[in-house]
Amino acid sequence: MADKSPVLETRNLEAFYGAVMALRGVSIEVPEGKIVTILGANGAGKTTLLKTISGVLDPEKGQILLNGEEIQGMEPDAIVRRGIAQVPEGREVFPFLNVEENLRMGAYTRSDNEVESDLEMVYSYFPMLKERINQVAGFLSGGQQQMLAIGRGLMARPKILLLDEPSLGLSPLLVQEIFTIIKRLNTEQGVTMMLVEQNANVALKAAHYGYVMEIGRIVMAGECNVLLASEDIQEFYLGVRGESQRAQKRWKRKKTWR
């Protein structure tokens, strides 16, 4: 983690949802060229964290640094222009635009002439999208929409791509397929990613570094293989049962962070 300065960093981020304190001092780092995953249950504040980073919510306190520059409190479109693209939770494609128009919307902030070659790049990773180039996005299946949403995020050619639960509502097979592509995009295209997930198993296998979030706090952090091996993660996030003398546990394990 220490060899490169991070692309994205948050320092003591605090944010409210109405009266509810959704982020209680979150500090994370995403180094260049890596996938960092944020794990946590429903209501842990993962999506709030992403929304705060992309400017849809304003933080109450703390800083968000993109390549060392503070970006908190800026308008969302200014933040996209600086290089943060988000693949939102639940896909959120433009239902009445076709596949290609959706992808071109992803490149809205760009004015260079490499949009066409990036379009081909996206199609090479998602050949399914090329087959349906003129189809309206609202009639694609959930998995296809997710691929479209990821492709659309890539079209911004971001410094960092924020992925909000790409596995949501997809079959295990499709989840495998999408995560394989995410991993390939990272190694082949060098896309830095921040991956928010509930599916800890698949996320920890795809990412390099992981944070565990609970009720607005980071409670654990480490390399993914370390996290995968940790007893707490196994018990509470991967559902692995510890062995005991009578093949049945007599007490509930307590989380070590509380």
Binding site: P76, V80, R81, P88, E92, F94, L97, E101, M105
Partner: peptide, 18 residues
């Protein structure tokens, strides 16, 4: 196109930098 997109999904349009 951005106007169409913003009318179909305002939040997603924000995420695209519109």
């Amino acid at each position: 196109m951005a106007m169409q997109a913003a009318s179909q999904n305002q939040l997603a349009a924000y995420y695209m930098g519109v």
